[in-house]
């Protein structure tokens, strides 16, 4: 599944970039994230719990940040699996100074889900992915400038 969209953040490009490279900040912004522990240069171990409607499940996986081009762009991979299935999202995140103020974020990538979730949730995947991304950027936006 293709995922693409835009978001706005009230920061300078440098600050926006730095926030999205900071594991403590990411841990707060990734919906349901319980822990994000560094395991390598650009890699973190992720534990998250997703609660959505009556669906709930724990996932373990990793976050990788690659292709750094501060403060313009980087690639992000989030992957996790648990009893109810697995998910993987990978994409390019671009940061450009907005004409008015702050930055425009554009993201573009691919997402996959599998397991029981995939077979029963077709009609919800797209909406859910979008909502989670929206929540992520809303959380980021609430950080101090």
């Amino acid at each position: 599944m293709k995922i693409a969209g835009t978001a706005k953040l009230p920061f300078t490009p440098e600050r926006a970039y730095a926030l999205m490279q900071d594991p403590l900040i990411l841990a707060k912004a990734i919906p349901g994230c319980d822990a994000l522990d560094k395991t390598g240069d650009d890699e973190y171990r992720l534990k998250m719990k997703m609660v959505l409607a009556s669906l709930s499940g724990s996932f373990e996986g990793k976050v990788r940040l690659t292709a750094p081009d501060p403060p313009n762009s980087f690639r992000m991979l989030v992957e996790g699996s648990g009893k109810i299935g697995f998910m993987k999202g990978e994409g390019l995140i671009k940061i450009t100074a907005a004409p008015d103020a702050g930055v425009d974020i554009t993201y573009e990538g691919d997402a996959q889900i599998g397991g029981t979730m995939a077979a029963v949730g077709n009609r919800m995947i797209d909406m859910t992915a979008r909502m989670l991304i929206k929540r992520f950027f809303e959380k980021l936006a609430s950080e101090p400038a």
Partner: peptide, 14 residues
């Protein structure tokens, strides 16, 4: 099936 082998229409919901 999607490209990863998931059966997307795996229930009567879809």
């Amino acid at each position: 099936y999607d490209d990863n082998g998931q059966l997307v229409t795996g229930e009567f919901m879809d």
